[in-house]
Design a protein around this nucleic acid. Sequence first.
DNA 1: GAGCCTCGAGTTCC
DNA 2: CTCGAGGCTC
Length: 705
Amino acid sequence: MSEKSVATLTEAEARKELARLAMDIGYHDARYYQDDAPEISDGDYDALRLRNAAIEERFPKLRRKDSPSLKVGAAPSGGFSKVKHARPMLSLGNAFNDDDVRDFVARARRFLGLEEAVDIALVAEPKIDGLSASLRYEDGRFIVGATRGDGSEGEDITRNLRTLNEIPAQIEGAPSVLEVRGEVYMSRDDFFALNVRQEEKDAKPFANPRNAAAGSLRQLDPSITAERPLKFFAYSWGEISAPFAETQFGALEAFERWGFSINPYSRVCRTVEEALAVHVDVLAQRAELPYDIDGIVYKINRLDWQERLGMVSRAPRWAIAHKFPAEQAVTILEDIVIQVGRTGALTPVAHLKPITVGGVVVSRATLHNEDEIARLGVRIGDHVVIQRAGDVIPQIVETLTDMRSAGAELRTFEVLDHCPVCGSRAVREEGEVVRRCTGGLICPAQAVERMKHFVGRNAFDIEGLGAKHIIAFIEDGLIKNPGDIFRLQERRGDLETREGWGPQSADNLLLAIEERRRISLDRFIYALGIRQIGQATARLLAKQYGSLAAWRAAMGKAAEERAENAGEMKKPELVGEIFAELCNIDQIGISVADDLVAFFAEAHNRDVLEDLANVLNVEDFVIGDTSESPVAGKTIVFTGTLETMTRSEAKARAEALGAKVAGSVSKKTDYVVAGPGAGSKAKKAEELEVPVLTEDEWNAFIGAA
DNA sequence: GAGCCTCGAGTTCC
DNA sequence: CTCGAGGCTC
């Protein structure tokens, strides 16, 4: 289709074309959003919208009432679809001073088993204050782009990302599958200019470049994003079909060859000290840089080392962010208010006279606990220095006692001995820092927090069911137990007639709930909010027991054992077989096992679980494909000093091959790998007739896989 | 038994 | 993001 350049269109032609575009775009919107079956590529679609916007810009008077550019909320319930990252997008550990960085390198050296004298080269690159994004290329074509989201699943912002000049639509010579990761950001100059335009349009200005970039990227209408001056630095990658570099810096160079921008301050440093010099250097130039940065990221340059180091929970062991000192400000502590958490923890929160720190207005900050208040010596009415830790969470750094006016009587914070919400006793256990409400099930504040946790992002992740609705639903008796959420459709009438609700909002919520009726076992366990059972431990349990039925059966039995042998906490075996089995899972000890079993000892909790099991579809835990692995499903115990690898490396490798790594030898142990100096464990293995391998034998054994 | 390391729980603002 | 506590290693 030959199109006339917008500049040469006559008014009549423009009017006709705008009408056609409105119709076409409306048609494709319906295919895309309603049928989920687009007929044209995103690129072609974007071209239509861009042309529409261009014509409207030249002939503002011709803008139609039904113009596509006015339909900001084209998406169904106003959102982006989700994209699962083929490889998770990690976050980074933080260093706040030079020693933290030296420690990081020392840890890596130890993990890799390297001599003190071996230098570990690092790539130092500025950490841009923007939003990370992942761009997937297949056969050189940009296919899909996503936000980081929770790290494993982000939002599909492909159409918005396509509007960025610095994101090539096509790249040459790259692996057939390549996920490029980097930071979308806005330069300071562009941010100021945008704010001027925003004010001219009577739109709210953005607080800082980061928010401006975030707001621009989250536009439902890509033509708005297209008008925003967003930029992109590539710095990392996700899934790749073939290796394309041997070093971190080599990867950056490859990105540059493919047409991406990489940060010009990125450089290879042979030693930690050289890397630390980059930090000093860039910090000195911080104000002159065209964009905001919040620190320097160091990555171990050799990719084979990166691979061996792997990751810990959500962060790689081969990279760290060295933060710049946080911006500080002085304000007045107006009040201290107590919040009640899911576990009953009473947390004092400072209410502050609102003040801008690092481009955001801060009015509250956590005071953690009563010891922290005592340490700060703060009283209500005091001037306090606040900063945003890691440039995000506000914290009170110090109290400016000098600024107390003479004779002024400032109120001190008084420790509560009762829960401010339910009135139950609030006690602080011996040796613990937190004070807790003992109200448990009767405390409404705890009930709300437990429910919030249940529907939260890392648990059931029910969209549209936020704190406000939860509180209202609980108050109105719509939900009492978690299972009630999944019976809300029976009370559709009650939902629709709520103030501010209608058929559409009820539909949206019920749909979001239906989507989550199916859930993985580990998320399910995590959602229950059992004390000390977070994401990592929930996954361990899911892995150990495999199915909800198996887990419930085991835990129920453990609770019985515990009832019979209460008080025998010192030795797990004395409590019971299952209890001992729990404690034998690496990372789970007596304390964690006891909280877990205590949960099952409560009839109320068993009822909640039974109820949930009836309304949900909890998927069995599936481990990655380790069918080829000789050690899949086997339980391994490492003991003694390992020579060719460190303990954590050995553990990580074994787990990757589908094995369970346990801490002590039992009759369930399949193999014991003993290095020199192995003592009691190797002996116990002999007694139990568990095969004992040397390290070399073990390596040969798994090497076959 | 001390000293790491990892995990959980609590929190802010947009 | 931070802090405290639990678990593991030596």
